[in-house]
Design a protein around this nucleic acid. Structure first.
Lengths: 218, 218, 218, 218
DNA sequence: GATGAATGAGGGTTCATTCAT
DNA sequence: TATGAATGAACCCTCATTCAT
């Protein structure tokens, strides 16, 4: 019942969100995978509601005990999901950056956006719910900070668009990310696929407009 | 522990979110006000965590029973908060629209954004948390739909920027709203006040870019 | 949710079940009537669930305060309902007894049963629910004893069927009453009307058999 | 305070009354037993009042959580109690039927009644309270239908008493059951033991009379 | 007398987490 | 290591009853 996200949060240190132990053995690897996938599936199917550790364990065909063997808390599980999401994003964006090295910023942005739409589109609801959950986490912990690595990747790309002096760029990359996420979420909600192409154009438009106003030439 | 946002939401009909009875007497008016304000304060202070009906009642200096006399459920309370938020937004935007009648779309957008920054800035965390909560609600119910009235206000303004034929505009206004919300939230998080002026520029930039790509001349 | 009948019952004295004050004025009479009727209607419509003082008051078009002005407790209200039920029964049975004075016990029983079916049939669900509620009350208080007056009416009738000596008859009349109530309830549940005539026969049969075994010639 | 029996019963499907999971391990078996027994004892001691899940758990020396691990709701617990009751009854009646195969219907009825008195007599108050609770349940759900298996057992026995053609017998067995239950309840209330023998006679008498009127020769 | 706002103890239920086996 | 039974704090919500107006 609209039950609180993040209830009774005890002082959560960043460490507490790390997976408890990296599974060495093959079997445990499989267990961890099963858990993570189960969590994803439940989140996709039921949203935050119905996402509870017992359900995840059951869906994973594993005992709660095992879940807690690998994830010290429910938050840690969410964090892992986010981490994976971010990693995939990072990889894809890095590749896109590579592939478009030397091209215009506009083209690069479009490549980024295209990739992001693809990725979020693969499991749309999951992405959206994770965004939400991360928002919740961020409010409390800031532990899963918006994937600093992604920012680190984006910032230099944007810098190319800058005149020779170096005005501050912090925040700008983050804004771009947030902006794109929001619009992609909405586009995916819209449903039809051809609209995605349209959305891509508009998102690039928004980014371009934003960056121009931020002093970054596109 | 990261307990689910929106758990076990039963088939929530729109009706279920309406305040239970409008307080006739003076005394009850005060009670309702106290409850709503307490809810807002708790949401601001603790986020969704710690936002529970007993706490709200206690903070309001009222019994839980009274709370439930006016709000049939916790959700209804959130809905009321949202409603008020939306109403204030609507009023402000309407005024801004009036004041800028006849001006260029760009100017009007800037007026809208300026107002929104002001409004959200008044209780920044509250706005953000409500956004989150509404997102949760929307996922389940769509009952508190993103203030259709606001969309209704925005759409004709945007239409002015259109060539004489009428391409679809649905979604566009919503995207603009979401985009602005996101960026404003982030700007308010940034902290310093002068950055708000900067943010305003950039948001208008993003909107302009978005709209241009959507075929709306700014 | 299967919430307890008779929760938190404080030491209920018989007195506590009496209506608080007999309404002298015409207006209050009407109020009391409205309350009692509302209670009956709710019991009929929703069963014990949904039978709460606030609902009764609302349905009666009266404030809770007024309800408590005339009935010191919810129990008292139920008691009143029972009392009225019992009174009507008593009147009808007395009349039947009169009308059949001098006839055979069998005939008189049939007359009683016929009347009871009629009466309970008038508001079948109400009767059944009241039976239930009374059972609950009896378990706790014994205050609304099964209408001793009715027993007092029945006993001498049965006594006629006795040989000249006087074996105990206590309990017998009560059993007859209970037996008839149960079967009538079931018959009324059955639904169709013609079955009622059949039921009448069987109930009389059961009573006859019971009494014969109890040494009462029919 | 005479708080409603069976309040707010939501659409209870039959499934919702089934025990949640059958305990595999020895330990949990004991837990379930403890819970069921505690429930019975509380019902016996305090009646429906005081029968709440927390109390049951406490009395069972177990946490509420455990209770809900095995029973999805309070109702389910009642249902289980009923089920056990009905099962015991069924077993005993089946045995009695076997033992008296070939005898006269009268003798068989007496055997049934004797067994029922014994069984209900073992925990008289419990039986009575359960009857009441079941009545409540039935009004709402009909899920725990009066042990259709028992009816299935009784019906053919009664059929023996029928002339060769087959008039409807539905309802008849149910009436017999209800009739016997009622009278046994009352007899057990009476208190003294020798009265039970007397009661037996009378109950058989009532059944005989009833059946005769229903066209079943005894 | 009447009103209805206010009270708050009470009760059903969930779920993150632990720990004996 | 895995299991899953057990825990219990927390939370939502109801309703009999009171009392200021």
């Amino acid at each position: 019942m609209l039950a609180n996200s993040e209830t009774r949060v005890p002082p959560v240190t960043a460490a507490a969100l790390d997976p408890r132990k990296s599974p060495r053995q093959r079997r445990s690897q499989a267990t961890v995978e099963a858990i993570v996938e189960a969590a994803a599936r439940i989140l996709e199917g039921d949203g935050p509601a119905g996402f509870n550790t017992n359900a995840v364990a059951r869906r994973a065909g594993v005992s709660v005990g095992s879940l807690y063997q690998y994830f010290p808390s429910k938050q840690a599980l969410v964090a892992e999901l986010s981490r994976r999401n971010a990693e995939a994003a990072l990889a894809g964006l890095a590749q896109a950056a590579d592939r478009t090295r030397g091209r215009s910023l506009a083209e690069r942005l479009r490549a980024f956006v295209a990739f992001a739409i693809d990725q979020q589109g693969a499991r749309p609801r999951l992405s959206r719910v994770l965004d939400q959950l991360e928002a919740g986490l961020a409010l409390e912990t800031d532990a899963v900070a918006t994937a600093p690595a992604i920012l680190a990747l984006l910032t230099p790309v944007l810098r190319e668009g800058l005149a020779d002096d170096t005005p501050a760029l912090e925040g700008v990359a983050g804004d771009c990310l947030a902006l794109a996420r929001t619009l992609i979420d909405r586009a995916l909600d819209g449903g039809d696929v051809e609209s995605l192409k349209v959305a891509e154009d508009r998102i690039v438009g928004a980014l371009t407009g934003y960056l121009a106003a931020a002093g970054v030439a596109v």
